[in-house]
Design a protein around this nucleic acid. Structure first.
Lengths: 212, 212, 212, 212
DNA sequence: CATGAATGAGACTTCATTCAT
DNA sequence: CATGAATGAAGTCTCATTCAT
């Protein structure tokens, strides 16, 4: 339960100049991580790209893990926003599914490089496994709630376990994005979104609203 | 396309005794890989567990990658068999889906430890990325073929892209197993199998056979 | 022979305010040196404790060695005073020995924390080895002179080498204090003083004054 | 109370060849430690002097601390033997004191270089502080026992605390050796031994055996 | 005079792999 | 075929001191 402190090891600059230097490091690190992966990324490559001495790195971050955390935090926030995209309660569920899927796919596309590395680091470090889990939970919990509501409205098979279904759909969407955008299987964006949306909706047996 | 040679680096013992020694190394390696992961697994730990000198390792394998390949090959074969489980053409599709899913889940359960490590190594090494991709393809291609046939029989929405759907279902099943059996989310086996089967079948809009 | 300049590297503040700032640094440094030792003491810890920026340190001291010198100078002066405690020529030698021992013990007790660190630094730096030697010499030379006088008065064995005896007694007293007050062997103050005084006096075969 | 494990970090070679290599390292390390001190001694200097690659060091020792422990253990054993020199119960106490002092001085002389470094390390590391304390205790405990016996025989002032006196004498002898043989104060060996022995014997008020 | 960011040399350590015995 | 010692490249991190603002 004890959530790791995601700011651990990330030092806070005390001047405007320091703030800019930290930003430079973050940008350089993103580039290096995407290029070389976490394991092969060298601090000296990052500082060289940011045009500073290697020692300066430690003015702003305690370790490679720390700067990776900082880099990923931004990505995470992007995914968080995507997974929380407001759908407007008045819409049709199908439309909502599509909206959510599209937002997720877009966010994944924009950050595919770093998400690939996060996937790598998550297999190595429990800390980052937890981080990835968190963002996954947002998506899953949201789906679960939606399914519960639709079951309540009699529009979805009531025998299905909402949590289990939500987990499965989350797996489908997130892993499809991984295979497509990271591993490089060739698909066409619109087709992906339509297929995932359809499988999702039909999978849970979504029925049209019962009109009165 | 050029398939890596999965036997490269795995030396062939000349004697019966050598064969048994190699087996001992494989068993020890499985244990160490599961315990420490690929990166932290040390050759000396493997040889110590197999009760031999570190130098002897290279009589049987060329490298750490080679012995990992050998260890994973067995697992892979298990998954291959599972993914190829004969279903008997006469059966109902729903039953076939369930059978395939169950076989996959069982195989995953039996090898969860090493599959977790394969997941790790696949993020690091293209060679093993390819290996994992292969086994995934078996499952996906099979699904794709099934869907195509059902579309031909008019029992599944013909506008869906069979490949895309198959990829999505493969993602759903394989990633669910990962989250459940490797990351440790708590689910109940039978419920998982039923849920995945249902989502699969309903997702593609499977209709009862048209009786004549 | 060339005595180091013990004020080298200690800058002289030009203002009253600067003077107080330097004092703050000295207090902070004492605390940090005692807590962490010389080697592990960090300039940033000292400045942080003194509530100023690390750069300001160099307005007042040239180096870590310089501030340590400044800190130790005070201690040294204390020991100097103790070792020079006036005994009044009229007293009984035994009483004088006790007075000197007591003064030394008191001074050591009051500064045990920093003297422990001086001991450390003296093993590392010739400069501080010299400093410690100086204070030791005061004690030793004084003893030596006393012994010579008593030998002249026929109250002490004339075959003993005054310098060698003085060195031995200095070793006994100073190292006892180190073992007791720094290393933490448990002794009772009064007992220590009496024992050292007795060993000293009896050791040199002190005889009662020859009355005429 | 928990005695550190003095073999920790010292690996045991499994072959004759390894044993010789470890010896080579120990000899090289002694030389380097004496030349540069513990802090400035570099692993690469040791391996270079022993004519091997730097990595080989870690086949035999875990760290610089470990090899220093191994080097000092030998010295310690030498001092232990010296401090335990058998005196023959029949002798005169004065002769016994001289014998013990002489043995200690000799042992110190032979190992002065490394003992200087031990003194340095002891001020830095509790582990080695403990080691030095151990050897000191042997000497002190032995003195204490002797004094107790002589008090029992009525040949020594019964009001003196044996432990406190023994500590003082140990301080005198050991610190004199340090000042003389490490810091370089100029003394003549025989004079030192006689002076220390006399101060010791007279200090405790040793009386000739009461003849019947 | 104060601030705090910038500097940079370099020792330690790991461990897969090779090789002498 | 077994043993275990030998190899060596290379990356992280520290922190006293300097310097621009």
């Amino acid at each position: 339960m004890a959530e790791p402190d995601w700011n651990e090891g990330i030092l806070v600059p005390r001047s405007e100049r320091g703030f800019r230097t930290q930003e430079r490091l973050l940008e350089a690190a993103s580039e290096i991580f995407v290029r070389d992966g976490f394991l092969d990324a060298k601090i000296t490559d990052i500082t060289a790209l940011a045009k500073m001495s290697s020692g300066s790195f430690y003015t702003y971050f305690d370790s490679k893990e720390a700067i990776f955390t900082a880099v990923i935090k931004k990505v995470n926030e992007g995914l968080y926003v995507a997974a929380s995209v407001p759908t407007g309660s008045s819409r049709d569920p199908l439309e909502r599914f599509e909206l959510v899927t599209r937002a997720y796919v877009r966010a994944y596309q924009e950050n595919a490089g770093l998400l690939a590395i996060l996937e790598q680091v998550a297999t190595i470090s429990p800390r980052f496994r937890e981080m990835r889990r968190n963002i996954r939970q947002i998506f899953r919990n949201r789906s679960e709630k939606g399914i519960r509501r639709l079951q309540g409205e009699g529009r979805v098979d009531p025998t299905l376990s909402p949590r289990c279904v939500a987990e499965a759909i989350t797996s489908m969407v997130s892993n499809f994005c991984y295979v497509w955008l990271v591993l490089g299987e060739d698909y066409e964006e619109e087709e992906v979104i339509q297929t995932l949306t359809t499988l999702w909706a039909s999978g849970i047996g979504l029925k049209p609203a019962v009109e009165s």
